[in-house]
Amino acid sequence: MTDTAPVIRVEGLTKNFGRVRALDGLDLTVRRGEVHGFLGPNGSGKSTTIRVLLGLIKATSGRVELFSGDPWRDAPRLHRRLAYVAGDVALWPGLTGGQCLDVLGSTHGAFDERRRADLVEQFQLNPTTRVRDYSKGNRQKVALVAALAADAELLVLDEPTSGLDPLMEQTFQRCVRDRRETGVTVLLSSHIMGEVEALADQVTIIRRGRTVTSGTLSDMRRHTRTVVRAVTMADPGVLTDIEGLADHQRERLAELTDSRFTIDTAHLDTAIGRLHEAGIHTLTVTPPSLAALFLRSYGETPGPDESVGEESLAETGR
C-alpha cells in the first residue's frame, strides 16, 4: 500500500455528555502498520474516543478521521475495513460460542475460515457451549477470536485482556503480533502499562480527556524513573554519587544488605554495575508504571474521578 495518510487522525476532539466533559481536546494519530497503545486511567476517555472513532457517538467538536473519512457520516463503509472488540464484551446468552463467532463475523464483513479455526484452538474455546454458560474470560475470547479472524486492516481493541488469565494473555499477545506481521494496524486501549509495553510501537497517554504525551515508549521512559531494590552479599556502600540516583535507603540484614533507590533510566547500567560488584543475591527492577509517569512528569496525583489500579501501580517488566 502506498497510502501514507494516517489510519486514524484525531485533533482537538471534545465530547460533552450533558454537563460532563468526557473529552477535552484530545489528539491521537495512528499510522498504518503500527500497534498503537492508548493508555489512560479508568474514566479518562478511552472508550469514549473509540466510540467517536467508530461513529457510534458524535463528536462535540474537533476533527476525527478514520481511513481519511468521517466516521459519523460514513460508518458502515469504513467499518468494512476494521474489527472492534468493545470494552464490556456483551454477547447473546442463547447462542453458542461458535454461533456468536459467525454472527460477529457477519458484522465484521469477511473473515478467514482457516484463521478462525486456528484461533478457536489457540484460545481453547469450545464452540458448542452456550454463551450463558461461558465465564467472562471465555466471552472475551469469543470477541477477540472474531476480531482477529476478520479480514480487517485495523483492529480496535478496548481493554481486551481484562478478563483473561495470564496464559491466555500470552496467546493474545502472540496473535496480535501475528496479525501485525501481515500489515494490520492495531489500536490497543489499556490502563495497564505492561500489556502496552509488550505489544506497542507507539503510545498515546491520555488523562481527563486530554492527550498528555505521545511517542515511542522508550522516548517516554527516558524522562522517568525506574525503581530498584537489591539484596547484595556485600555492602555496596553509599550509592548517591551515581548520577540520576535518588531516594536511596539501605538496611543491613544479618549477612546481606538491602538497598532501594530510584534512578533515571539512562543511568541504570552504572547502578546495576555497582550492585553487581557487591554480589547480587536478589534484584527487582520495576520500570516506571503508568501511575509513576503521571506522578513524576506532571507533579500531581491522579484526580478523584480516575483510578489507577494496583496492577498498574505495581507493574513489573517481563
Partner: peptide
Amino acid sequence: GDGRLETRLSGVLSRNR
C-alpha cells in the same frame, strides 16, 4: 443497554438497516 448493539453497529450493518 446490555452492550450488544454497540458491537452490532461497529460492523458493516448501518443503523437504518
